[in-house]
Amino acid sequence: MARRRKTRTHKPAAEDPALAAKSPKSFVIKSGTVGPSVAQLVRDIRKIMEPGTATRLRERASARLRDYLTMAPALNVTHLLVLTLSAVTSSLHLRLARLPAGPTLTFRIERYSLMKDLVNARTRNVGHAPGGEFRTPPLLVLSNFNQAPDAKPQPQLKLMSTMFQGMFPPIQIDKSALPSFRRVLLISYHAATHLVSLRHYTISVRPSGVSRRVRRVLDSTSSTARKPVDLGDDQDIADYLLRVKGAGGSSTSGSQGGYETGSETEGESETEGEGSGGEGQGSSKVELPADYVGRGNRKGTHRAVRLIEMGPRIEMRLVKVVEGIVGSLRGEGETVFHEFGESLFLFSFPLLFSLPRHRFYPPATSSSQKERIDLRPLFELCSSRSVALSSRLNSSR
Rank of each mutant, 00 (worst) to 15 (best):
Arg5Trp: 05
Ala13Leu: 12
Glu15Tyr: 09
Phe27Glu: 06
Gly35Pro: 03
Lys47Asn: 12
Lys47Arg: 14
Ile48Ala: 07
Glu50Gly: 13
Glu59Tyr: 00
Leu69Ile: 03
Met71Lys: 04
His79Thr: 11
Leu96Glu: 01
Pro100Met: 12
Gly102Glu: 12
Glu110Phe: 03
Gly127Lys: 00
Gly127Gln: 01
Gly131Asn: 11
Leu139His: 04
Leu140Thr: 02
Leu140Asn: 04
Asn144Phe: 03
Ala148Ile: 02
Pro153Phe: 11
Gly166Thr: 07
Gly166Glu: 12
Phe168Pro: 05
Asp174Lys: 06
Ser180Phe: 05
Val184Ile: 12
Thr193Ile: 15
His194Ile: 09
Arg199Ile: 01
Thr202Leu: 02
Pro207Thr: 02
Ser208Glu: 04
Ser211Lys: 03
Asp219Val: 00
Ala225Lys: 01
Lys227Ala: 14
Leu231Asp: 02
Gly232Val: 11
Asp234Met: 12
Ala238Gly: 11
Leu242Trp: 13
Gly246Asn: 06
Thr252Met: 04
Gly262Pro: 11
Ser263Ala: 15
Glu266Pro: 08
Thr271Gly: 01
Ser276Gly: 05
Gly277Ser: 08
Gln281Ile: 10
Glu287Trp: 10
Glu287Leu: 13
Val293Asp: 05
Arg295Asp: 15
Gly300Trp: 13
Gly311Val: 02
Glu315Arg: 06
Met316Glu: 03
Glu323Pro: 08
Gly324Tyr: 05
Val326Met: 06
Val326Glu: 06
Gly333Val: 07
Thr335Tyr: 08
Ser348Glu: 10
Pro350His: 10
Leu351Glu: 04
Ala364Ile: 07
Glu371Leu: 13
Glu380Pro: 02
Ser395Phe: 14
